[in-house]
Write a protein that binds this DNA or RNA. Structure first.
Lengths: 225, 225
DNA sequence: ACCTGAACACCGTTCAAGT
DNA sequence: ACCTGAACACCGTTCAAGT
């Protein structure tokens, strides 16, 4: 029992990759995207920036690791009734996770091909294949779903970021957007000015799922599923 | 003819909002997303940072203005044969513009509700309405298309950014991604490791249009168009 | 092996001073 | 009205020195 920990005795709460990631997530959640800085992280961990660099490569890698720690549990597959249901589960799990941690949205967007994105690719790819989409069409189908999800994620993140920066709650934010749009010249922007009112009452989560359903429906039609 | 210019005689090539935006675009195109800095911009314009701040609010606004200058001409509506064709025109115009100016992708993503995004909303909203999508479903339909486009845009930007940072051309970049994916454990990542080979030959532009067609097809099915 | 913290290079923004 | 450029606050990263 003297050497349970790998080759070292460390003061309790000492640094580790995991503790750094945990502290980063807390900082990002409480302070927003701009909250993760090395000074702030060093303070929170009661250490110097150099110590952090011993455990991680750089800030980008830290962000991706933090993102991965949120994404992975959000998309763990439940037993779903059908491939469509599995895809909806993954999508909803991600949407809710990103809603709770908006910074995940912008990180996800800036890190295609990295491990969080690959997890999602896989979680969507398997049910898309099970759906019966022809082999050579699977990539474009999965890519469309992934891009759509990431697009929503990024915009939600940007909206949350804006609202935070101006310390607006959701309703105030929506009211502001709605007012701006309704003031657009209705000759030049008939659609945007006309849709402004609906901004106030729309449900992000429902709208998100409509997009998923549109793509799933398109897959069924185009490939006779 | 003495007072053609508004209330001032300026040395040729003097500062103006337009000249600043033009220089910014040149910098972003030639140096990538990180290329737009006030030191670099000041040097290019042979002035000091303070002078630039006389004409623009801050860096964010400058990025959005530069983005807008690319987006606006990219989506000017041609006479299209059908609403579907109009939507495809807008989507392709944007895709090509973002391909030529990858930084537009990440800027677009970070500025929802701003003028570049509203232009796109309008350019897609009008044909979606003309398509016959019921009034109360138009927002979710347009939002889905917009999010998909923005999602693709952001990922393309991130990929271009990565390739530039590692000075890889497109083929080298794809090869690297393909190799990474093919080395994934095929027990845990059957889809991703299986699709790796296709990475090398896929056509971004075609895949992008498949996504648009999936959504359009979904609209036709769900709303009996 | 792991941590400390000063130092470096760089950046966005401000502002008193000029014309 | 418009420009100059020094100064400020802040940040990511490095590294010689410690334990």
């Amino acid at each position: 029992m003297a050497e349970k920990e790998p080759a070292s005795r460390r003061r309790p709460g000492s640094l580790s990759r995991e503790s750094i990631i945990r502290a980063s997530i807390e900082l990002l959640d409480s302070e927003g995207e701009g909250g993760l800085t090395f000074p702030a992280l060093s303070r929170k961990l009661a250490t110097g920036p150099g110590a952090i660099y011993w455990h991680i490569d750089n800030k980008g890698a830290l962000l991706i690791a933090a993102c991965d720690a949120i994404v992975a549990p959000a998309i763990t597959p439940r037993r779903a009734a059908s491939p469509e249901a599995a895809i909806r589960d993954v999508a909803l799990g991600l949407f809710d996770a990103i809603n709770a941690h908006p910074w995940v949205g912008s990180t996800l967007m800036r890190a295609p091909g990295q491990s969080p994105a690959i997890r999602i690719l896989e979680a969507i790819g398997q049910p898309v294949a099970a759906l019966g989409v022809p082999d050579e069409k699977q990539w474009s189908a999965v890519s469309a779903l992934l891009s759509y999800i990431v697009g929503i994620a990024g915009q939600n993140a940007a909206n949350a970021q804006y609202a935070r920066a101006h310390s607006l709650n959701r309703l105030d934010f929506l009211t502001e957007v709605s007012n701006e749009w309704s003031e657009l010249d209705s000759q030049i922007y008939p659609f945007s000015s006309g849709i402004a009112a609906r901004m106030l009452t729309h449900d992000d989560r429902e709208d998100f799922m409509v997009g998923i359903d549109l793509i799933l429906s398109g897959l069924a039609t185009l490939y006779n599923l």
